[in-house]
């Protein structure tokens, strides 16, 4: 038998015995990417001559998943990621969590409207919300340390995050398709 047919048969057997396996694996990919984005904001980037630039990938993830698959990103998870990020970075504990949660709450209330928008409108919404969120973070930290922080890095990071949004959307779309596909297959297997 052809090796490809053998593999296909093997996959079919695996699915018959573990119907939830593809869905489980797709969830695993989602959480692994989320964790990777979390760490990307903390790892040293200066080596590649991108000094001091840190795109807010976590914010992009919250934006996308709050609109397209809110159940995957519950409030407690966003809170944990934000709080953990603050603790590791040394920011006021809860500051990032507060901003991410507020954004998530707002996005969930506007989910129906945003789902009906095209990519360009979505990008514009992301740009607006990203500016508001990063400036809110800047204001919060300036207030916390009682000193006006330099604005330039905030502006540069906002622009970078907005510019990278299409790339992050492509990755998230792929993961979403993977999850939806796995879920449909599981439902089909259950209905048989």
């Amino acid at each position: 038998m052809n090796i490809f047919l053998q593999r296909k048969q093997h996959d079919a057997d695996a699915e018959r015995f573990f119907p939830a396996l593809p869905l489980f694996l797709s969830y695993l990919v989602f959480y692994a990417v989320l964790l990777l984005l979390f760490f990307l904001n903390i790892l040293p980037t200066g080596y590649a001559s991108f000094t001091g630039l840190q795109p807010a990938f976590l914010f992009a993830a919250v934006f996308y998943w709050s609109i397209f698959y809110p159940a995957l990103l519950p409030f407690w998870l966003v809170f944990s990621l934000g709080f953990g990020f603050d603790l590791l970075v040394g920011l006021p504990a809860g500051g990032t969590a507060l901003i991410l949660l507020s954004a998530q709450w707002l996005l969930r209330t506007q989910q129906r409207f945003l789902l009906g928008q095209g990519f360009w409108a979505l990008w514009l919404c992301f740009a607006l919300l990203c500016y508001v969120a990063l400036f809110a973070q800047w204001a919060l930290f300036s207030l916390f340390s009682w000193h006006v922080m330099p604005l330039l890095p905030v502006v540069v990071n906002s622009i970078l995050t907005i510019a990278l949004f299409p790339f992050t959307v492509v990755v998230f779309h792929r993961i979403r398709a993977l999850i939806l596909n796995a879920r449909n297959r599981q439902q089909e297997a259950g209905s048989l």
Binding site: F75, W76, F79, F83, P92, A93, G95, A97, L98
Partner: peptide
């Protein structure tokens, strides 16, 4: 839930 977690975040700060 969102209010609870937002409250927790503010408390943390």
């Amino acid at each position: 839930f969102p209010l609870l977690f937002i409250f927790m975040a503010v408390s943390g700060v």
